[in-house]
Nucleic acid binder design. Structure first.
Length: 561
DNA sequence: GCCGTTTTCGGCCCGACTGTTTTCAGTCG
């Protein structure tokens, strides 16, 4: 995300939390929270927008537009300062505790003098919480447990972890079940697991309790558990109303709210059971999501687009753009072999490509430079190209002779031009000096983009999910340069990277930049990551024409002239 | 604070579950 947008979104979200603690109008609280979301997912920087442009954004009116300008210019605003003055610093963090909301935080503060996590834990241990009216032993235990969970950290899950936990749950549930929530929407990180099932309630509760750390709550309609430290929700449906339930549990929350607003216009109420006519009270049920969309007069919205970023209005006009499908992918555009730090031989890569029905695989081993073991220098790259030719004589899947060349700290590449000219396709990536400041890093990457022989910029922001933040880089400038030079940007499909992020993919797609999906596989099982890359491309509104991997081998090679 | 196919005031998505309740507030998704 753009640094200014991140800053502004953070301040607006904090104002929302503080207003909530002070018992302000809930709709005002929501207005700030929504504005924070909108700014956080904006493709362009609010730093360059005037108040008129800001007010044109959904959920941003005169008052918030002024504050956005103030925050963008000064890093804060008077409203934030005023609220911070009136509120102990540690209080907003308490809102994140499971089972603790604004009303509770306020009472703990006013009646017990609690101003942070440590205070709260001490108060609970001293049994001072159960002394409050309306609170008893159970609430005190709940709070202590929530403090423990918070101290262990509550980072979002990687896709790998989330898919594993979902599989464990699907295996435990005695009946048909579907993954919903952010996992179904293809998000890069997952907060909790959501599942819809047709299985019977009682048996499901029993078998889930066996795989769970803890059952958070269990009723007739839903079960919430903690599994391997993560939260999971299961909702029960019947075949005749499965559509509305899947739609509801897939979300996102913002999308659901928009959809329910759409339903209200003709006097309907949308919930997870169907559409109710306000006047007659009649409930219409739906077996599939598409039937719900049809009843609302919309074309179906693919799960990956359900974020309230303009897709609802397009669906109402019947103008949802076609998105790239995994079936349309003709090859993997980033694979490592045993020639550098991978484990697959060239023959194994070709065989794996054939097995997947691909036309081609881009062999893109690391170039020799600091930090990368067994990188290829010019002579070894030349020898690899001979070996690739040999494999291609008998392989049904063509190996493209490529390389993932390092972009050095000064923007130069770590292989000579002649070496790069002999490649079918060249990926250029940053693997060192991650700490450069934004302008230096941006110019460094743009220097590589402008090189004639560079076809793709690998993992453009360099983030490692949960381990390393993205480098400081002005993606708007990078995307403009990529458009001007017809250089593609990579969608790195490895669950540890998922780089680019969807908001930049969309921005690149809008400017006509091509995107290349690569698994960055270092071993055969990692070739399956491709589907994550496709999901990410879909989240960035990419159609088949935006994706390099949908091109035929001949078309792809034509790029090099 | 935002917003307009019941427009410039008066609404604002909707329901499940828990705890401490004797009818509901608070929290969550």
């Amino acid at each position: 995300m753009d640094a200014t947008n991140r800053l502004v979104a953070g301040v607006l979200a904090e104002i929302s939390d503080l207003l909530e603690i002070h018992g302000e109008n809930p709709f005002k609280v929501r207005a700030y929270a929504r504005a924070a979301e909108v700014v956080g997912h904006l493709g362009r920087s609010v730093a360059g927008m005037n108040e008129d442009e800001l007010e044109a954004l959904p959920g941003i009116g005169k008052a918030i537009a002024e504050k956005v300008r103030e925050i963008a210019e000064t890093g804060t605003c008077r409203e934030q300062a005023r609220l911070r003055e009136a509120t102990p610093q540690g209080l907003p963090a308490l809102l994140n505790l499971q089972g603790v909301g604004p009303k509770t935080v306020r009472r703990l503060w006013k009646e017990l003098g609690v101003v942070g996590l440590d205070d709260l834990e001490a108060a609970a241990r001293a049994h001072r919480i159960r002394a409050l009216r309306g609170f008893r032993e159970k609430k005190e235990h709940e709070i202590l447990r929530a403090v423990g969970v918070a101290r262990r950290g509550t980072d979002r899950m990687s896709l790998t972890e989330a898919e594993h936990l979902a599989d464990v749950m699907l295996a435990a549930i005695p009946g048909e079940a579907w993954v919903a929530g952010s996992l179904r929407r293809g998000r890069s990180t997952i907060g909790d697991i959501d599942i819809v099932t047709l299985a019977p309630v009682r048996e499901t509760a029993h078998s889930l309790a066996r795989v769970a750390d803890e059952v958070i709550d269990a009723g007739e309609k839903k079960i919430s558990i903690r599994i391997s430290g993560r939260r999971a929700d299961v909702r029960f449906a019947a075949p005749k109303d499965l559509g509305a339930m899947l739609l509801y549990l897939t979300g996102s929350k913002a999308f659901n709210i928009r959809l329910r607003e759409v339903a209200r216009i003709p006097g309907m109420r949308l919930n997870e059971y169907g559409l109710t006519d306000h006047k007659t009270g009649e409930l219409r049920q739906f077996r599939t999501e598409d039937e719900v969309f049809a009843a609302l007069g919309m074309s179906p919205v693919p799960p990956e687009l359900r974020e309230d970023r303009g897709e609802v209005d397009l669906a109402l006009e019947g103008n949802i753009p076609p998105l790239v499908d995994v079936q349309e992918i003709r090859g993997d555009l980033h694979v490592h072999s045993e020639w550098s730090d991978g484990t697959m031989s060239l023959e194994e890569i070709a065989a794996a490509g054939e097995e997947r029905g691909y036309e081609y695989m881009l062999v893109s081993d690391h170039s020799a430079s600091l930090g990368i073991a067994h990188g290829l220098d010019a002579p070894r790259l030349a020898r690899q190209q001979v070996a690739i030719e040999q494999v291609n004589r008998t392989s049904g899947c063509t190996l493209l002779a490529g390389v993932e060349v390092d972009i050095l700290a000064d923007g130069k590449l770590s292989l000579p031009d002649e070496s790069l000219q002999n490649c079918d396709l060249v990926i250029a990536s940053v693997h060192s000096a991650f700490g450069q400041d934004e302008d230096v890093m941006t110019r460094r990457v743009i220097t590589a983009i402008e090189k004639r022989d560079v076809d793709i910029i690998g993992h453009p922001t360099g983030r490692l999910i949960g381990r390393r933040p993205p480098v400081a880089i002005d993606m708007e400038r990078v995307i403009r340069a990529a458009a001007e030079n017809e250089t593609a940007l990579e969608i790195n499909a490895s669950p540890g990277r998922l780089d680019l992020d969807d908001i930049y993919i969309k921005q690149a797609q809008e400017r006509g930049v091509r995107l290349a999906i690569g698994t960055d596989a270092h071993a055969a099982p990692e070739l399956a990551y491709l589907r994550h890359g496709v999901a990410l491309a879909r989240r960035g509104w990419c159609g088949p024409g935006d994706i390099l991997n949908t091109r035929s081998l001949a078309d792809l090679l034509e790029r090099r002239g």
